[in-house]
Simulated assay, not measured.
Amino acid sequence: MKLFVALLVSALAISSSFAFDPSQLQDICVAVDEPKNAVFVNGKFCKNPNLTVADDFLFRGINIPRDTNNSVGSIVTMVAVDQLPGLNTLGISLARIDYAPSGLNPPHIHPRATEVIMCVQGELYVGFVLSNQLGNRLVTRILKPGDVFVFPFAMIHFQLNIGKTAAVAISSLSSQNPGVITIANAVFGSKPLIDPKVLTKAFQVDKKTIDYLESQFISIK
């Protein structure tokens, strides 16, 4: 029993050491590209805290709509550590998503974050898919302004504007650098391309279909 308890404590300690976006051990750690006289923390160099200024913690323009004239009819304005250096080590980020009528934020995952989304304008059909263990069950709702929905950590999720006018959403993510993997782009637009033998068997279609899908995602890059 003592050995079991010791192993359990050790396992918990090890798992904690590999947690995502660990808590900072200082007040601030503004990210800088120049490593001179800086400390490397959580993937970024830290600016000397005595040299930080208010602008290190400021991002302007999240209120400005962006052009949705693209193949999916949506655009994401990301405010993560690369856009706002003061987020470094704080474990949070923000995004604005603009949708044209019928615009889609395609199925994707954030490999390092849970996401909470709020509909600000328009009407959105949103959802996520649970893992194989839970039968790939689809969880969906229709959001109207003021509604909030959560996409659990690393689950495939999406948003579709089902209204007749432009829509806007604001999302908060539990990582300073949540990352994104858009499923279709990753599968059909990888560099180099995945062997078609893999995809024809995985999707149970012929090579001609795979070739067509790959051509679509290559052409939009």
Rank of each mutant, 00 (worst) to 15 (best):
K2P: 07
L3Q: 05
L7F: 12
V9S: 12
S10G: 13
S15A: 15
S17T: 13
S17N: 09
A19Y: 11
F20D: 07
D21Q: 06
P22R: 03
L25W: 04
Q26N: 06
I28Q: 06
C29K: 09
C29E: 04
V30L: 04
A31S: 12
V32I: 01
D33E: 11
E34P: 01
N37A: 04
V39P: 00
F40W: 12
V41D: 02
G43C: 00
K44A: 13
K44R: 15
K44Q: 15
C46L: 02
C46T: 08
K47G: 03
N50K: 13
L51M: 01
T52W: 07
V53C: 07
L58C: 07
L58S: 09
F59D: 09
R60G: 15
I64E: 14
R66T: 05
R66W: 00
D67F: 07
T68D: 12
N69Q: 05
V76S: 14
V76E: 15
V76W: 14
M78G: 02
M78L: 14
M78F: 09
V79W: 04
A80F: 09
D82H: 01
Q83P: 03
L84E: 10
G86V: 03
L87V: 01
L87D: 05
L87T: 10
L90N: 01
G91S: 01
I92A: 08
R96E: 01
D98F: 11
A100E: 11
A100R: 12
P101R: 08
G103R: 00
G103H: 01
G103K: 02
P107R: 10
H108L: 07
I109T: 14
A113F: 11
I117Q: 09
M118W: 05
C119V: 10
G122M: 08
G122V: 07
Y125N: 05
Y125I: 02
Y125D: 05
V129F: 00
S131K: 15
N132C: 04
L138V: 14
V139Q: 12
T140Q: 15
R141A: 13
R141K: 15
R141G: 10
L143V: 08
L143D: 06
L143G: 03
K144T: 11
G146W: 01
D147S: 02
D147C: 00
V148A: 15
F149Y: 14
F149I: 13
F149R: 03
F153G: 00
A154W: 01
I156F: 13
I156E: 06
F158K: 08
F158P: 06
L160N: 01
I162S: 15
G163F: 08
G163D: 10
T165Q: 05
T165K: 12
A166P: 04
A167F: 05
V168D: 00
S172C: 13
S172E: 03
S172K: 04
S174D: 06
Q176V: 00
P178T: 03
G179P: 05
V180G: 09
I181H: 12
I181K: 13
I181W: 07
T182Q: 06
I183L: 15
A186S: 15
A186T: 11
V187G: 05
G189M: 08
S190K: 04
K191A: 11
K191L: 13
P196D: 14
V198Y: 11
L199D: 10
A202S: 12
A202H: 08
Q204H: 12
V205F: 11
D206S: 04
T209K: 14
Q216R: 14
S219N: 08
K221I: 02
